[in-house]
Amino acid sequence: MSRIVFPGEVIAEKPVRASYTYTDGEKTYATVISLMSDDGKLVPLEGPYEPLAEDVVIGFVSDVRFAGFTLDLGAPFTGFLSSRDTRIVLALGDIVQVRILNVDEVKTIDLGDGRKLENGAIEKISPVKVPRLIGKRNSMINMIAHATGCQIIVGRNGYIFVSHTGNHALARQAITFVAAHAHTSGLTDRVAAMLSEACGRPISPDVVPAPAPAPAPSGGYGYFGGSGGREYGGRREGGSRGGHDSRRREGGYREGGSRSSSGSQDGGRRPFGHRRENPGEGSNAQHSDQNKAQNTDNQTPAGQGQENPSPPRANDQTNEGQSQ
C-alpha cells in the first residue's frame, strides 16, 4: 500500500539514489509531496513539467520572431520552434503539437516536428497526472475520446488539446475529473460510469473498437503510431519492458503525445513525425499505418537505448499500476 510522504520526510534510513529525494549522507528524504510505494519509489502528486528530449508536447505560440516561434509549454521554460525546423506558419495564440528535440543545461528547449492544431482548445492538467489520463494502453483517453466523439491529443506537459467536434464539454469534464482523482484507484471504472451516465449509453474501457487499418491488440481507437514507445506503463507484449530504455522514464514513453480520436475523420492521415530524415533512428519513423500492425510488439529504436542511465521517472509506471 502506498502512502503520502511530504518534503523533508525520511524515506530511507540510509543514502539512496532515487527520484524526488535527496540525502544528507545519512538518511534519504523526500523533496516533493508524493505517493511512496512499498518498494520505496516516489510518485509525485504535484509538480512542474520537466522537459525531456523526445517528449511530444502541446503549446501555444506566445511570440512570433523572425527566426521562429516561441511556444508556451506550461513548463518553467518556453520552447523555441525554429523556422528552419518547420514549414508551418503560425500566428500568436496558435496551438501546436511539437516534439522536443533537445534540452540543454540551462533548459533552453528546442522544438521540432510542429503541427498546428485547429478547431479546438487546450485543457490544462498537472503534468504528473498525464500518465493516468492516458491509462493503461491508452484505455482511459481512448474511452473519453470514443464516448465524447472528440479528438483528444495529450501533450506530456499536461496540455491536452480537445477538438470542438463532439461533446467537448463532457470531454473536458472527464479530463478534469481524472486529474482531480488521479491518485485514487479504480478510476477507469468511475470515469466509465460517469461517461455512461452523461451519454445515456454504456461506455466501457474494454469495448472501444480498434481502428480499421490496424487490428493491433494494443492499438487504441483512432490512435496513431501506438506501438512500442507510446504505451504508458510498459506492458508490452514483446517482453521488451525495461532494460533497453534507460532514460528517466521507464516504459519507454518516447513520443509523449498520445493521439486519440473518434476515428473516422483521421483514418487516412499520416502519423505525426513522418518528415524525419533518418527513419532508422527515431521511433516516429516506424509508425506509418501499414507497418503499424507488425510493429506493435517490440520497438527498440537503434541507438537510443544506451545513453543516459539516470533513474526512471517513477510516475508512469506506478500510476498505471493502480488503475485496476
Partner: peptide, 8 residues
C-alpha cells in the same frame, strides 16, 4: 509543498 516545488 502543494505546488510540488522540491524542498529539503
Amino acid at each position: 509543498a502543494d505546488a510540488g516545488i522540491p524542498m529539503k
